[in-house]
Every structure is written in structure tokens, then in C-alpha cells.
Design a protein around this nucleic acid. Structure first.
Lengths: 159, 159
DNA sequence: CCGGCACCGGACAGATTGTCCAGCGAATAC
DNA sequence: GTATTCGCTGGACAATCTGTCCGGTGCCGG
């Protein structure tokens, strides 16, 4: 577990220019193509790189409103609630967190008004006791991984 | 704005098999290669597809602990706090939300003990009044977009 | 009725990929 | 001390895909 400096540089390069190929990477990094290819294979079978799925912008799909909802779940209803939420397309992500029966989910909606519909659908389920929603206004730091990768690579090299 | 059924099928196909090429997609979808290529170009310049960055698993990097922190910010300190948080690699994501000076951020750490270090670093900044942290235990619904894409495509087609 | 538009099916050269190979240096094992 | 394993290099090959054209067709709005 862990990555070294070359792995880190590969991931960062990939994150900055996703359409880059193995050949071009090997040129930029100054290593043989086979090396980059082997590293990539290893990173993917390691699970460090899960895949290269397209990053879709919900806003461009017509869902410009994002919100986070904290749900309080009735004891023992966890599995049912999960199954319920999994059926709601507007639920992009769901976590169970510390605290008694709490879940945190990320929602999107077509508008603030539409958010009400989504929330109604989310909480309109028996096992959910209470929901607290926070609407996202700005996203100063979009989901990112590069700084962490650099950190992890440095840590590994130092060892 | 919006996508039609073919766009939706392209995105879903891409999400399921990221390494697929344009040619193979055109074969699967039963359309001409040029069509798929044109759609892809449009989706990307539309901003619907932001890119194809590698999905890196923080756990595989040695950061298996995820947490969400709600931060209460002192009036007017927002920009400074953002800049501060942007410098912390373990902050993967930051949102400002409704409520007086509230922010929500996603953190990762090497362990529960390490999480304390991360939180100290996050809140060890003048503009932050209070922080409430929820540690993620399970992730029943990982970040997903396919259901929303299908929904958006259906809505568009119906119109 | 006439564009304009999106799609089809095909063509082309150029680049990249997957997959081999032999050689080499370093770290590891015996 | 020596043998083995490992990762990297630099090169090669055929197969594939990409970017980019083209002409032709069907549909919609003006």
C-alpha cells in the first residue's frame, strides 16, 4: 500500500491531462513506456486508480442545485433506508456516519422548488425520523485529489 | 441545455466501461462513429462531461478514514478560511452552505488518531468559530451519476 | 420549395496500443 | 560471495484506433 514519487507523478499528470496517452506520459516523465504501462497496471489492480469514468456536471444536466441532508434514522431501519435512497436518482452519494442512526447524503435538484420535491421523496419513508438540509451556495474547493496524491508520494519517498 | 437519449446512452456506456473507445461505442450503440464523436465533442464543450480524470481511492493511498466537518465561520472571514482550507491536502472538498457562515468540508485521514491532527489543522485558524465532525462509517451509495443521467435523458425525450 | 442540420457509411494517413524481447543494475536470498 | 529476482530500459512488431475528410440522405423550419 502506498505510492512512490513516480506513481504520484503519473497520477498528477493523468489528473491534469486526462486524455494523455501512455506514450506521451513516458516522454514527459522521462521513463520508458513499458515502465509507465506497468505502473498504471499496478495502480489499477491496487485499486489506487478505480477507473476513468467521465466526470459529469449535474448543473449541465439541468440540476444546478446541490444540497447536503443529514438524516436521522430509526433504529434498525438502516438497511431499508439505504435501499430506499438508492432508488432516488437525485441522491448522488450516501454515507452513514457516527452518531445514532445518522446518514449524510448529497442531493441535487432542478431548482430550489424542485429540491422540496426531492427532499419530500427522500424523507417520505418510514424509517426516517428527521432531516436537516443545507443548500450549497458555493463550491470553493471542488472534489480534488492531487494535493493528497502529492502528499502521499512525498511521505512514501521519505520512508 | 439537457441531453437526449443518445447522449444519455453514451454517458452511461462511458461510465460503465471508461476505457471504451469511440469506435466501439458506435458499434454498441448502432450509430456511425462520426455521430458518437460529434456527440462527445458537444458534451464536452457543453460542460456536461468535464473530463476523464482518474478516480483515485484515498483509502488505497493510505487514507482510509473519511469525515465531514461543518464549520462555523466568523463574519467576513469566509475568503480567508477558504484559502486556508485549500492549503490542506486532506481537505478533498469544500462547500459553503446556507446558514450563517457555514461551510461543509470532506476530510480524509490516515487513522482516527490522524483525523485529530487533520481537524486541528483545519480548525486551527482564526476565522473558524466552531467545528462539528461526523466520521463516515459506511458508504452505501458511492458518488454516482448514472441514475441522474438516465433520468435527465428520459425527461428530455419526453419533452 | 429551399436551406440547414444531423446522421450515415466510407476513406485515408498518422499515431497509439498491447505485447513481445534481451540486456542491465540493484536489492535480496542462499 | 554468488545466484536469483525484480524493475527499468530501449527496441521491435502487428493490430487498432484516432482525427479528419468526403458525398449522400432524410427531416424540420422558414
Amino acid at each position: 500500500m502506498g505510492i512512490d514519487g513516480l506513481d504520484g507523478r503519473i497520477i498528477v499528470l493523468l489528473a491534469r491531462e486526462p486524455r494523455i496517452g501512455v506514450l506521451e506520459m513516458s516522454r514527459r516523465l522521462g521513463v520508458a513506456r513499458g515502465t509507465v504501462q506497468a505502473r498504471m497496471d499496478r495502480l489499477q489492480s491496487n485499486g489506487v486508480i478505480r477507473g476513468f469514468g467521465p466526470e459529469v456536471d449535474p448543473a449541465a444536466l439541468g440540476y444546478p442545485v446541490t444540497a447536503f441532508a443529514t438524516l436521522q434514522i430509526r433504529q434498525g431501519q438502516g438497511p431499508d433506508v439505504r435501499a430506499h435512497l438508492a432508488t432516488v436518482p437525485e441522491v448522488l452519494e450516501l454515507h452513514t456516519t457516527t452518531g445514532s442512526g445518522d446518514m449524510l447524503c448529497r442531493l441535487v435538484a432542478r431548482s430550489n422548488a424542485d429540491l422540496q420535491r426531492v427532499i419530500d421523496r427522500v424523507v417520505g419513508f418510514d424509517g426516517i425520523v428527521r432531516a436537516a438540509t443545507a443548500i450549497v451556495m458555493e463550491n470553493p474547493v471542488p472534489l480534488r485529489i492531487i494535493p493528497l496524491v502529492e502528499q502521499a508520494a512525498e511521505d512514501e519517498d521519505r520512508v
